[in-house]
Computed example of a mutant assay.
Amino acid sequence: MRLAGKTAIVTGGASGFGAGIVRKFLTEGAQVMIADLNSDAAAALADELGCAACAADVSDSASIEGMKQAALHTLGLPDIIVNNAGITHLPAPLEAVTEADFDRVFAVNCKSVYLMAQAFVPEMKARGSGVFLNVASTAGVSPRPNLNWYNASKGWMNTATRTMAIELAPDGLRVNALNPVAGETPLLSSFLGEDTPEMRAKFLSTIPIGRFSTPEDMGNAAAFLCSDEASMITGVCLEVDGGRCI
């Protein structure tokens, strides 16, 4: 129960890594709101787990404000914000990615972190406590060809994590990131280009431990970094990748 008495918002929490984080937080005693663009999936998982849910487009400031008001009504000012929502473009040469795809990747993966900070940092500063956890990717640490702008967006998240940590530490706020390798999530087929046994085997050959990251792996790491046990840890970008980035 390392998160007993804590409240949390997990964006993109209806599936994949986000759902793993939601499940772990609940078992550790937190009250959780799932915020997801897929409102039906968010509501279904919330009903299953007995927590709150809210439809949210994390790239839109008005939607973020609506989510904030729903959270304040349901949870109060949250203790923990998990910026997990993310998107990628399909594998392609960097010059072939469309402007629309580029804009969407940076809006969801980067602008969302800015918007969530705008929405919650002022009141967290006034309270003197708060934790942000940004879900980046090994793609931002050890990039692969043909995912150039996705790689860049996740590198941005790692840098944003460190700069947020430095600036907010005097106000009692901590900011960390997780860098997972690909996992069994809705984005896997996009990363692989095509989800075939051959493509999976090729990708897995680059992971020394020999398997993908799981939602449970992410939940375990997130629960520690967001708990008081990690009160001296800020600005860390933790690789949950089975040795992929070594």
Score class of each variant (00 low, 15 high):
57 D>I: 04
58 V>M: 10
71 A>N: 08
54 C>Q: 14
100 A>V: 06
68 K>D: 00
86 G>H: 06
70 A>G: 11
102 F>I: 12
85 A>I: 06
91 P>N: 09
59 S>N: 04
84 N>I: 08
65 E>Y: 05
103 D>L: 13
96 A>H: 09
91 P>Y: 12
72 L>M: 15
86 G>N: 09
106 F>D: 00
81 I>F: 12
89 H>G: 10
96 A>Y: 12
69 Q>G: 03
107 A>I: 05
71 A>S: 09
99 E>K: 11
69 Q>R: 15
59 S>M: 01
104 R>I: 01
92 A>I: 05
77 L>F: 13
84 N>Y: 12
63 S>E: 09
56 A>P: 00
91 P>V: 10
109 N>Y: 03
58 V>W: 01
70 A>R: 15
107 A>V: 08
87 I>L: 14
103 D>C: 06
106 F>C: 00
94 L>N: 11
105 V>F: 03
107 A>K: 12
93 P>S: 10
63 S>F: 05
103 D>I: 07
81 I>G: 09
89 H>Y: 05
90 L>G: 06
94 L>H: 15
73 H>W: 04
56 A>Y: 01
88 T>F: 05
86 G>D: 11
95 E>D: 12
88 T>R: 02
106 F>P: 00
99 E>D: 09
73 H>D: 10
82 V>I: 15
104 R>F: 09
102 F>Y: 13
66 G>T: 03
97 V>N: 00
102 F>A: 01
60 D>Q: 13
93 P>Y: 03
86 G>T: 07
108 V>D: 02
90 L>S: 07
95 E>K: 13
104 R>P: 00
108 V>R: 02
84 N>A: 04
80 I>P: 01
103 D>F: 14
89 H>W: 04
83 N>Q: 02
60 D>R: 14
72 L>I: 12
79 D>H: 15
104 R>K: 12
55 A>M: 07
68 K>I: 00
56 A>L: 12
60 D>A: 12
73 H>M: 10
101 D>Q: 15
64 I>P: 00
57 D>W: 06
56 A>G: 07
98 T>G: 13
78 P>D: 11
87 I>T: 14
73 H>N: 09
106 F>A: 02
88 T>Y: 03
105 V>W: 11
64 I>V: 15
65 E>Q: 13
59 S>D: 02
59 S>H: 03
74 T>H: 09
